[in-house]
Design a binder for these strands. Structure first.
Length: 152
DNA sequence: GCCAACGTTGGC
DNA sequence: GCCAACGTTGGC
């Protein structure tokens, strides 16, 4: 089993929206970045665990835990001209964008803010705290996962 | 709202 | 294949 972190904007779709979904599950659509795509298509497996991170908001940070319940499949929003993530260059016969289904597990007892994560020497190597990082899906090591949970 | 950092596009 | 221009991300 592997560990991941996925960003989302709470103004668009936050951890509480995920918790309210039928079966607490949501297709993680709309990701349009090749590195993130590759991870969702090739590397994320059923049962993997995910930190949900709120970005672009008043208090950016890790807010909860989810699990992967369906492995990579083509992102249908790429084929829908009405969708704001429509990509005319994604051919259904050879899809460009992929997603996974994510299921709510629990909220953390508190948000662990980005500022706090940045202050931890133990987390120096994390992609999340590196300057200019813009990846919306990234791996988390087991050591980092446990360390972050110990801050909860 | 600002702006640095980064990814993508497209002309050459 | 280079690289300038452009668009987006996301913290602050």
């Amino acid at each position: 089993m592997r560990y991941w972190l996925m960003k989302t904007e709470p103004g668009e779709f936050g951890i509480d929206d995920l918790a309210k979904r039928p079966r607490k599950t949501e297709p993680w659509d709309g990701v349009r970045n090749y590195q993130a795509r590759n991870m969702m298509r090739d590397e994320m497996k059923k049962g993997d665990r995910v930190f949900i991170y709120h970005s672009n908001c008043e208090a950016p940070g890790i807010v909860g835990i989810a699990g992967i319940v369906r492995e990579g499949y083509p992102d249908p929003t790429a084929f829908d001209p009405e969708d704001r993530h429509y990509d005319p260059k994604s051919d259904p016969a050879n899809p460009r964008w992929y997603l996974v289904d994510v299921k709510f597990e629990r909220k953390l007892r508190r948000t662990i803010p980005l500022t706090e994560l940045k202050a931890q020497a133990a987390l120096e190597g994390m992609a999340l705290v590196r300057r200019g990082n813009r990846l919306s899906v990234m791996p988390v090591s087991e050591r980092e996962w446990k360390y972050i949970l110990s801050l909860e």
